[in-house]
Amino acid sequence: MAPVLTFFGVFAVLPMVLVVYLSFTDWDGFGFPSLSGGGNWSRALQDPEVGRSLVLTLVFMVLGWVVQTPIAMMIGVWAAGRQRNRAVLSSIFFLPVLLSTAAIALLWSAVLDGNFGLTQQLPFLDRFSFLGDQSLVIYTVAWVLTWQYVPFHTLLYQSAARGIPVSIYEAATIDGAGRYKQFFRITLPLLRYTLITSTVLMLVGSVTTFDTILLLTNGGPGTSTRIAPLYMYITGFGAFEFGYASAIAVILLVLGAGLSLAVTRLTGFRKMSSQQEGS
């Protein structure tokens, strides 16, 4: 246990303690942080940008979950089949997993560019400014994030679906259950824990990752896509207000930890038991 605890202490607990400490200081990167009491916290409570960016984070979180989960599950279950054509198609479909975030962001900004992008050469699509329209851009970003992350979650569902014993389906077929009944009565309940894992990853991911948005829109136009983690980054490494950025980081830390606890608790994930035969 001790080596694990050492690693956990140095790489997980210590940074968290430090960020909480920093949130009570003023620090512009020079010299040592000076204590500022609750200054950063009262500012965070009054800063409309904090509330706005948190709401936006939640919008992306919900939008991401609602769109990505069904797609990832359907493709995952489909790809779990052993047919050769499925193997070929799914390996093509998993390509985004192999691309770096920077490559994905640059690719899509080239495709969607309002002046010289691919979409400007196509009929109908050329009337939209995908990255420039302040309301449309939210859906554009959600689309790119879906494209980026669905393959990963698909992998989760695929491997889980492959773990379901064929004998259950055979028994169901003998009992006269059709395809849809089999999906909703067998596959879906047995994928329950994968669904929870995938959900926790998506929820926590949306309060911590901002790299795609940073490179695709840089939070713009204006602040239309400036989600809370990106606001934290801009405050810390653009404005060099490390104390205030740490206060935002603590809010995100609490939010992320709370969400994953809530999901695991509400779904009974902690009382995890195998639902499969023979184990």
Binding site: S109, D113, G114, S129, G132, Q134, G220, G222
Partner: peptide, 14 residues
């Protein structure tokens, strides 16, 4: 309009 210029980049040569 804002839709025209708000996503236009300089670095990329726009």
């Amino acid at each position: 309009t804002a839709n025209d210029f708000s996503a236009t980049e300089y670095d990329a040569g726009g």
